[in-house]
Design a protein around this nucleic acid. Structure first.
Lengths: 341, 341
DNA sequence: CGTCTCCGCTTAAACGTTTAAACCCCGTTG
DNA sequence: CAACGGGGTTTAAACGTTTAAGCGGAGACG
């Protein structure tokens, strides 16, 4: 690979001049500039990103860590998310370094390693939770990062999130419009922050419709198919005049559990029990019936996150400091009142 | 961040000595070694990976490019694959740089950029095809890489692949064992190399069972739900004594299309038409009925690829140069002869 | 007692950039 | 006409490492 020295020799100038030409700094005469550019062209020179980085003390890398996906779960938006981040980063001449997270979930040692060895210039976090140790650490050491998801509200950091509360409100509103009154919610364990937001939307929508929420209509379950399946059974066993006529599940995975439990109970998803999921996994369209679900604007999230982080890396303060994007309800037949022929 | 100079000062030695201690090279007295290590500890020093890289002319990065997933498709193993690669790489002190591929599929400009600017030490390719331009380019410039998937058989490079032919053979064998004779195959377009291998397994298994293959039993379709759905309809419209009793689809996505077409034709998946998919997507377990599918040993693939690439980076020749791993048939109810109660 | 060898350490060059500072030349300006 | 200013270029230091080469000193050996 040719270096800047080779170019300098070829163009009969000093390396400094070559550097000035390439960075449009300093003052270089038109003639010299031409000679240099021709030499660059001829030799096919590309500046070494390593040397540049050492000099500027930056790696032009953004770190993103894989969080472990539990055996029976799937994360339907993970790959879209990372891809959108990589896309957006590329447009700013940054790249994404994806590293695995070790077992103990919020372990920060890997992050520390990346920070202290100058592997990355900043991080993008996802799957944040309340009192996230990673966020705490990065705030403490003052290292640039942005997060997909919120955390401890007392911490001041930059994030983008999808408004889960609004999403579930949309779902409930849609169900209300169809005439449903007994609407249940299959929620997540209390320690899930995202779960709290989404569940809040349920409460809000029901309250503003003036509907009393039967406590039996809220069931909590891990984000797990089997558990969701079992969680739905008590509802399905109720006499038809007490049974919920609709369920909002906080994830597509759980919604599928509810759908299958419904079918196995001899009832029909849609007419007997409307089901709404969350995430709009690629599979939703192909389920029987296709699953109504909330689509997160993932590409937008990646885009915003990256531009916020780039701002931070340039020493600017991103504005706004926090962004809450709205999901979109994709209506399919799992909330249809009658079976489509 | 403390540098090696700070450590040297703290330990009252030269930077060279510090370096020798840290790399276990040169000869250093026990006392000095202790002093240096204490200084390292005290200052919390970590060598800069950039400076090291510049010196050694390596980035300790492995490049992997996202290939575009078409709108209505999904790649059920992509995230598992990248994660396994990142895991394996981490164990060798390498990291994975994931970069987006531009529109025109096999475009090599991004790869060239990475190569010429020393962004990565080697590549891992996936979704290879016959006469893959990326492989051709990397072979031409002699840049280290390994591929998940085969390509032009005349090119000599290192790859790991899952034996799609064997996979489909397993599927057909399973169907034969259940007594099926009229077994159809929903294949991919002819230009798909992976599709060719998988289809070959079908032919082989049928031949070795001494069964004639009706040409109507092989239908080609893009890897697309809708197209698979439509492709299955002619089969389903046949009188029951001519209709295939089983279908092997080359992907889960297409298998789902076949399943839904079957149900819509008023037939029952399993008893009336056994269906087998390929990939064992996370969703297969939750379909109705659950889909029998071929599971690729993805973690193993990532592992082998990385260790082969590391060999190459160390100037060693990986042995064996090519690895063909066997998939495993996961039997579920989509190939059950009777409906499970 | 001189020479050789080896140990333990330091000096300095090198990796490929950027950039502050110095330098030279030429045209203004007081 | 001397001093100044500025455009165009070079020199050299710096970024944080590694490593070949050099260099004292001590022990071994003739």
């Amino acid at each position: 690979m040719p270096t800047i020295k080779d170019v300098a020799k070829e163009a009969s100038v000093s390396v400094a001049t070559v550097s000035y030409v390439l960075n449009n700094s300093g003052s270089v005469s038109a003639g010299t500039r031409q000679r240099v550019l021709r030499a660059v062209e001829k030799l096919g020179y590309r500046p070494s990103v390593l040397a540049k980085g050492l000099q500027a003390n930056e790696s032009r890398m953004i770190g993103y860590s894989w969080h472990p996906v539990l055996p029976n779960q799937f994360d339907p938006i993970l790959d879209k998310f990372i891809k959108s981040v990589a896309d957006a980063a590329g447009r700013h001449d940054y790249h994404v370094l994806t590293f695995p997270c070790p077992k103990p979930y919020n372990e920060i040692s890997v992050y520390r390693e990346m920070v202290e060895r100058d592997r990355v210039d900043g991080f993008i976090l996802s799957n944040t939770n309340l009192d996230d140790r990673r966020i705490r650490y990065l705030l403490d050491v003052g290292f640039p990062f942005v997060a997909f998801g919120r955390s401890n509200p007392e911490w001041n950091f930059h994030w983008v999130d999808v408004d889960g509360s609004n999403g579930v409100e949309l779902a409930v509103a849609h169900l209300l419009e169809l005439g449903h009154q007994r609407i249940a919610c299959l929620a997540w364990p209390e320690d899930s922050l995202t779960g709290q937001y989404r569940l809040a939307g349920y409460g809000k929508a029901m309250a503003s419709a003036g509907l009393r929420v039967d406590q039996g209509w809220i069931t909590r379950s891990q984000n797990d198919y089997e558990e969701a399946y079992r969680a739905a059974q008590p509802w399905l066993a109720l006499p038809s005049n007490q049974r919920p006529t609709a369920v909002v599940a906080l994830s597509d995975l759980m919604a599928i559990g509810v759908m299958n439990a419904t079918a196995d109970a001899g009832l029909e998803v849609g007419p007997d029990l409307a089901v709404v999921g969350f995430d709009d996994a690629p599979i939703t369209d192909y389920l029987r019936p296709p699953l109504t679900s909330l689509r997160q604007p993932i590409a937008g999230v990646g885009e915003r996150l990256v531009s916020m982080l780039i701002d931070l890396l340039h020493g600017e303060t991103p504005s706004p400091a926090q962004v809450l994007l709205k999901p979109r309800l994709i209506v399919r037949d799992s909330t249809a009142l009658s079976v489509r022929s």
